[in-house]
Amino acid sequence: MPKANITFEDIGITVTVPAGTRLIEVSEKVGAGIIYGCREGECGSCMMRIVSGGENLASPSVLEDKVLKENMAGRATRLACQAQVLGGDIVVRPA
């Protein structure tokens, strides 16, 4: 199965995960500083900054896009509860 490496920059931990994993499945377990609210892509609490490797995440859904716009998020911002890794290396930190 293809793998991906997610680095949580704020705590200096890199986790190797299967492709298709959502960030939310990993970040809380390692104690990263990304926080969650609704966990369903609606509240915007889990906005995170993509430091590098944004192209290795699946594109945002219509719902995620709308929430990001309503929260005036920058281009390198995603919702951790929605973002799914495709492979390669991704570096993130709390927004």
Binding site: I11, G12, T14, V15, T16, P18, V26, K29, V30, G31
Partner: peptide
Amino acid sequence: LHLCGRAERRVLDISELG
């Protein structure tokens, strides 16, 4: 160490997270 931001940088496999 985590409080001070001096925790060792680590590489883990997801299976180690329990």
